[in-house]
């Protein structure tokens, strides 16, 4: 097919941007992953799969992959169920629906950095006048150092509530869009056949009809879980680096490749490739299992 001039006018700049800022860096990163590339992006010392072997035997990196697989196993179903529940509720109500939709969607527009700082500095700071500690104080409890204490690991509470607040609205909108595409006559037919309004229609009509949306949401959630960076970096990172717990793979790679005191692009790139393969693999398996 011959594309018109207008096609290239509109698509061209975007395609060039994609090529220059996405595909070239990916290719370059792949290349770097086979070299000893310390403090240089034009390395000369080829090391083959050495960087990959190092990363696959590197304790902290494997640990971060492990931690975030567990994190994904929790956060993906949790966000999924809550977003779906929210969407069903908002879709049900007959008054001020647009208002509620906007209210729940609004946090999506908030910057991760700003939200992280609000969570870290005002809601969950460790001093007695922090919001969460003030509430605890009403019940006579001692202040809790939310982002510091590792036993119990309260920092998960901070990070998970933050992530839910930021993301729920977006996935809710996806589900609402899916819900509104379900033809009304299906429900009507079901009611005539005697299906009850609650669980039965949800189980036999709504959920099956939402399958495509669900697969998309799960996929996005999974990728987002492995790509965690912003709120973790801003809540738990300090000027002394990042603690060894709840360290997302991307943060570990960020410190490896760009940390002060040694830019190791070879190992960083190898880690990024491993992570990419992992995300692609898990996504494919998930897609297969769900659409079967």
């Amino acid at each position: 097919m011959k594309h018109s001039r207008a096609f290239w006018l509109f698509v061209g700049p975007f395609a060039v941007g994609l090529l220059v800022f996405v595909y070239v860096p990916i290719g370059w990163s792949l290349l770097l992953s086979f070299f000893d590339a310390r403090n240089t992006v034009t390395p000369t010392e080829f090391v083959g799969l050495g960087n990959y072997a190092d990363m696959l035997t590197d304790g902290p990196f494997l640990q971060s992959l492990g931690t975030f697989s567990v994190f994904a196993a929790f956060i993906v179903p949790l966000t999924f169920v809550l977003a779906l529940a929210l969407a069903l509720l908002v879709n049900q109500i007959s008054f001020m629906q647009a208002f509620f939709r906007s209210v729940f969607f609004l946090p999506t527009a908030c910057s991760y950095v700003v939200a992280s700082l609000v969570w870290k500095l005002s809601i969950f700071n460790g001093v007695r006048f922090g919001l969460a500690n003030t509430v605890l104080g009403w019940f006579g409890a001692e202040p809790v150092a939310w982002t510091v204490s590792t036993s119990p690991p309260w920092y998960w509470l901070v990070l998970v509530t933050l992530r839910l607040w930021l993301q729920l609205g977006f996935y809710m909108i996806l589900f609402i869009a899916g819900l509104q595409r379900i033809p009304q006559h299906l429900y009507e037919a079901a009611w005539i056949d005697g299906a009850s309004r609650g669980w039965q229609t949800l189980r036999y009509i709504t959920l099956p009809q939402l399958r495509t949306t669900s697969v998309a949401v799960l996929l996005l959630l999974l990728v987002a879980a492995y790509q965690a960076f912003d709120e973790f970096y801003n809540v738990l990172g300090t000027d002394r680096g990042y603690p060894p717990f709840a360290r997302p793979p991307l943060i570990y790679l960020y410190y490896t490749a760009l940390g002060s005191g040694g830019q190791d692009f070879g190992h960083g790139s190898a880690g990024a490739m491993i992570l990419t393969l992992l995300i692609a693999g898990v996504t494919l398996v998930q897609g297969k299992v769900i659409t079967r």
């Binding site: 036993s151 410190y255 005191g261």
Partner: peptide
């Protein structure tokens, strides 16, 4: 505080160890 030959790999290894000892016991 940060000698020239104390690289980021060393610092991460040491800080991780200290953090685990101090915070996790």
């Amino acid at each position: 505080s940060n000698p020239p030959d104390w690289t980021s790999v060393m610092r991460t290894a040491f800080n991780d160890a200290v953090s685990r000892v101090v915070r996790d016991g």
